[in-house]
Design a protein around this nucleic acid. Structure first.
Lengths: 205, 205
DNA sequence: CCATTGACAAACCGACGGTCGGTTTACTAA
DNA sequence: TTAGTAAACCGACCGTCGGTTTGTCAATGG
């Protein structure tokens, strides 16, 4: 084994770590490469040896955060012991809302990532992590007639967007605990309505 | 009347017009002030006489686009002749989805605006334009018992986010017409479920 | 022992956003 | 007419920043 490579990986991790803090704190544009170099004590050459550019460094940070969030969410859902689609979705939404309250997640994943990575790439990541889980559970709900099968995809997107939105609302609220409570009630009610079995095809007024 | 001021307003409008095209086409970061100057034939001094900085120029563009979108959406809703909350919301959502398919709206309002203006300011604008309308209609729905009154705010946010999300999904789809059809069906079903009065008494405040 | 390679260093470059002193143009009052 | 004023406009210049290029060094493997 090459000790140089271990050292390289260590500095790479260190760069991601420091960059995560800075990006979360000042945003992508507000964070200069200079600042990262200063905080890490690295040189330009070293950074550009590990990452082809600022955007790729950011991308590495996004993937790191995404992974951590995914693991936390999964842990929270399994810890809830839910088995029914409604409970699973509720647990997932609430977990996501709590996670998205964290500035690191909010700023990096929700605010900057779509712009920096281009939202095409961002969608791929989201589909890989959050959307996939939602679709799986919604498909179960569709199999038991709680949701139209052809709208699983659309409903998954709606659920994902709703979670993000509520998380941002909470973050913006003056009274965060109150907003959190309201949002959780909204999730509960929202899911109850969305998953209700359809007796007759979509009604018209 | 002072012809100097008229001329000033004209160049200001011209700057906004050209900047709108460029921002929509290349995004905020991808658009240099130089490019705007070149396309307008203006000088740096002139631009910075009218706008304190690039971000303020972008802000003016955002407001301009927002206004146009708001007018179009309102026109579409009134043209639909809807009176019931369900139909009003459906008309509004569909109108918004169609408008958001336009690259100008998508790139400027949905992608760049939150990052550049900071999403606090962005939320203020959104509340002023789209969210206000949704809340009004949802309040009507709450008055007739179709929706819990204490969740009007949350549901309005969810509806707004859902519309944005579906618009982005459509934009990303390979088969746009098909995606559009699916999304419209999803809106229909989604609204029907969201606004259906629940058999057991809804929590009211 | 030496050619190779990964890690890091630092001088340098071009583009960009923003500033600033100055000029032109048009209106107004003496 | 003319002096004064203010808005509109001009363009050279500056600092910052992301990215490139060239070079050093030490560990590795034949």
């Amino acid at each position: 084994m090459d000790r140089r490579i271990d050292k390289g990986q260590a500095t790479r991790r260190h760069l991601i770590e420091v960059a995560t803090e800075l990006f979360a704190d000042r945003g992508y544009e507000g964070t200069s490469i200079e600042a990262v170099l200063e905080r890490t004590g690295m040189s330009r050459g070293s950074l550009y040896h590990h990452f082809p550019g600022k955007d790729r460094l950011f991308e590495a940070v996004v993937e790191s955060v995404h992974t951590q969030v995914g693991e936390s969410a999964l842990a929270a859902v399994t810890a809830s012991g839910a088995t029914e689609p409604h409970d699973l979705l509720k647990a997932a939404e609430l977990a996501w809302i709590r996670l998205a309250s964290e500035p690191v997640v909010r700023r990096i994943l929700l605010i900057d990532a779509p712009t920096v990575l281009g939202w095409r790439r961002w969608r791929d990541l989201e589909a890989q992590y959050g959307l996939g889980m939602l679709k799986t559970v919604l498909q179960q709900a569709a199999d038991t007639g709680h949701v139209p099968a052809n709208l699983v995809e659309s409903f998954a997107h709606i659920l994902l967007a709703a979670g993000n939105e509520l998380a941002l609302v909470i973050a913006l609220a003056e009274d965060v605990p109150a907003a959190q409570a309201t949002a959780e009630a909204a999730v509960e009610e929202f899911l109850a309505r969305l998953l209700r079995p359809i007796s007759e095809p979509a009604k018209r007024t």
